[in-house]
Design a protein around this nucleic acid. Structure first.
Lengths: 350, 350
DNA sequence: ATGAAAGCGCTAACAT
DNA sequence: ATGTTAGCGCTTTCAT
């Protein structure tokens, strides 16, 4: 196979415009010390020749790679894809991340890394060495992983931790799960519910705790006890089934349940049906995840919409800013979720 | 910010192992002319130092970029993501593509390009110039776009056209839509249906035609006419509604309908309900897309499962083979879909 | 404000 | 079988 060379390089442009490489480089990077007329002349040549700088070459000479890495948990991500259960977390990341990247000439590259693995550090180091990204976006549970955080800090690569509580290195962007949990709880309290159960996620995920906090706080403010109303799941359907059964089988049966993700909400719906409970007449239900599938249930589920796209978009912005040496927010950046009403909430049965 | 340099480079390894750069390079790339003991010594240094070659540098010196670009239609992809309607086409591409790439040290990068745009060529050229990918995967409708095909051929970049009919440059990988359409049609014929309607996709998509072909062929073989049984949609819910209404409002009302994608199948289900038709008692329904949402309808829809992950995985394999100068299949490569039975098909009512 | 020279990390081509 | 040399395309010094 013929060895492909860059068709039109900075040299061609320089020759065409009759200037030095350096001047062309200055124009490309929008640097000072170029007269407007010069700049215009060079730009004309660039347009004429359809020149686009090689990212590899730019990276080589110590500049940016225009690459941002989004690190996702391999096991869970692959499982979600295989299950085809409608989890669109990655799509929403791409939606927010790719479009924002494109605005600035960057690309977003998804990288799968295994958290439960001794090789995390090795895997990540390899990716960083190979790709030399300008920034890294950490999703849960990587955003809490001290090994990953340490490595990134040491290498001086700007990184955003999504959905992590403040402390530690890196820029933190949160979806304010606590507030969202309050939102859901208040919504139910407002309808007259008092026995509002929560199916929480696994402890490994920081968000699980914050959601519990939000729910507890809202309940406390309303002067209502949470005793016997908390169950744990691990985000799987099966775990949701078990948690729902525990909750709905208890003597103080809740009149409403908030499930920490869509699978567990779906499971709760199923269990309710099996127990002969009508949703929303006998049980109100809120899903903490506005994924595609929960709109197609009967009834459609009221849900907390997590602004994943917006959050990742924000993360990209912050990384690009960091990379440019701009000032960064000291405080965690917060992107708020919202409640989407559908048909799974009503007042508790008389 | 401190200028980041490659922490450990080929030089460090060479020094550590006491050999020349070239020998290290040979070991990295598994090239001949290195004595086993030498190779072992170098490998030991590589492991010890945790060395990973910089892809940018490899690319620069005329070797691979270890990047494969997957080109998707921007408008439709973004619309799907925004709609959050459960289309998991991109996820399945990532599932098949990323995992296969990872096996060979490659990465898959999604790139959105606008087909209905005069700038296709410019956009694509820019991406190619900037990224210099080792290969490109074209999805519909890009796989039929002569501008894109021409550009890629001219630049000598290996590319796979997914879901395109053979003719023209590039490697073709098909999901055999014609056969899948026959599969669906035969399934219905086998249940005793004769008036089997088809809601086809837009003409712009090659697959639309092949599905019609498959359906026609199966019907012809069964000695059944297709007159008045074909409707067109454009893959949207609204278009599906209209098509379903046309079909179900006709004097020769079909007892079964095959919808060319999930949205149109969902729309058909809705229209059937509105007309007081029970699925599957009064109308059998098959969706030509086994997406997440159609499992959660009542009843769950019988569907053709398109092996997207497998197809993209195959595409990656072929690109890597092409890139290595291996022989390529002359004939289109075919990955077959299958029928997933759920509850939306029964024998036609008496 | 512009240009020339040096080098980024790696591999292809050419020695030895 | 191994080492040496010369770039790849670009940006960073450092001149002018």
């Amino acid at each position: 196979m013929a060895r492909r060379r860059q068709a039109v390089t900075i040299k061609h442009v320089a020759a065409d415009a009759g200037v030095s490489l350096q001047t062309v480089s200055r124009v490309i990077n929008d640097e000072p010390n170029v007269r407007p007329e010069m700049k215009q002349r060079v730009q004309a040549s660039i347009d004429k020749l359809g020149y686009v700088p090689s990212i590899a070459a730019q990276r080589m000479s110590g500049s940016r790679s225009y690459l941002i890495l989004a690190l996702n948990d391999r096991e869970r991500t692959v499982a979600d894809w295989r299950a085809r259960a409608g989890t669109d977390w990655v799509d929403q990341m791409l939606l927010g991340g790719m479009l924002k990247c494109a605005e600035h000439g960057y690309r977003l590259l998804i990288e799968l890394v295994d958290t439960h693995n001794d090789h995390v550090e090795r895997e990540l180091s390899a990716a960083l060495a190979a790709l030399r990204p300008d920034g890294v976006i950490l999703t849960q549970p990587h955003s809490e992983n001290p090994l990953i955080i340490g490595l990134l800090s040491k290498q001086g690569i700007p990184f955003v931790r999504i959905g992590s509580r403040g402390s530690g290195a890196g820029i933190v962007v949160q979806m304010d799960d606590e507030r969202s949990a309050r939102l859901a709880t208040d919504h139910l309290l407002g309808r007259g519910h008092e026995r509002i159960g929560l199916i929480a996620g696994p402890e490994e995920y920081g968000v699980s705790g914050w959601r519990i906090d939000g729910w507890r706080a809202a309940m406390a403010e309303a002067g209502v006890t949470t005793a016997g109303l908390l169950a744990r799941g691990d985000f799987t359907f099966a775990s949701g089934e078990k948690a729902a059964r525990d909750l709905l089988g208890s003597p103080r049966r809740p009149t409403a349940i908030i499930a920490s993700n869509d699978q567990m909400a779906l499971a709760t719906l199923k269990v309710a049906r099996e127990l002969g409970l009508d949703v929303p007449r006998d049980l109100s239900l809120i899903s903490f995840d506005n994924t595609p599938t929960i709109r197609f249930t009967q009834p459609g589920l009221t849900a907390i919409d997590q602004p994943i796209a917006e959050t990742v978009s924000k993360a990209v912005e912050l990384i690009i800013a960091a990379q440019r040496g701009e000032d960064l927010p000291e405080q965690p950046v917060i992107v708020s979720g919202s409640l989407v009403e559908r048909g799974s909430v009503s007042a508790p049965a008389g």
